[in-house]
Amino acid sequence: MTPHQFTDEELIAQFQAGNENAYLEIVARFKDRLFTFVYRFVGDRDLAEDLVQDTLVKVYTHRHAYREIARFSTWIYTIAGNLARTELRKRKRRATFSMSTLGFGEKEYELPSEDYAPTKALEGEQTEKDIRMALARLPLHFRTVIILRDVQELSYEEISKIMKIPLGTVKSRVNRARLRLQEMLANVRTKGEERSE
């Protein structure tokens, strides 16, 4: 049986029993998914990479803390989410202290250029950029649920466990987050079209 035939829960059980190869398989399975989640959450590539590393180190050092009462993915996303939230809080405090007017993550976004005229090839890139901009401006509780649901494609039940909020709250937050995101995207697109004219 090759490692990729095992479920996540079987892999962590093997790792808990001392099989280091199982850990490497876990890393291979989750690193990009975690990176996508954390990167879209914090909006900074380097910071996201550090946080994913922290998450995977925690999985290594605290492997015996996992009990098979929840799915392994729920556990690992919870660790990553908590680390990301803590980091965002720290950054927010620092930003407040330095009286900076720039919001977190804003530095990497650029306003659409004056000669913005999307060709077909650039369209996808622009859409991604628009969504990133809009996501970064969503309140944290909306951003988290929409990333977990629409980018990571997790079930509502899993999101409920990761965020430790009731299922109904998850559904209503996703609903409102999608509507809010759509409003923001519509504003971004309208501004872009105005500039291109």
Partner: peptide, 13 residues
């Protein structure tokens, strides 16, 4: 938007 988020927001290390 939902399709774009799923397809275009994936990032790799």
């Amino acid at each position: 938007t939902q399709v774009a988020m799923r397809d275009e927001l994936q990032a790799s290390l």
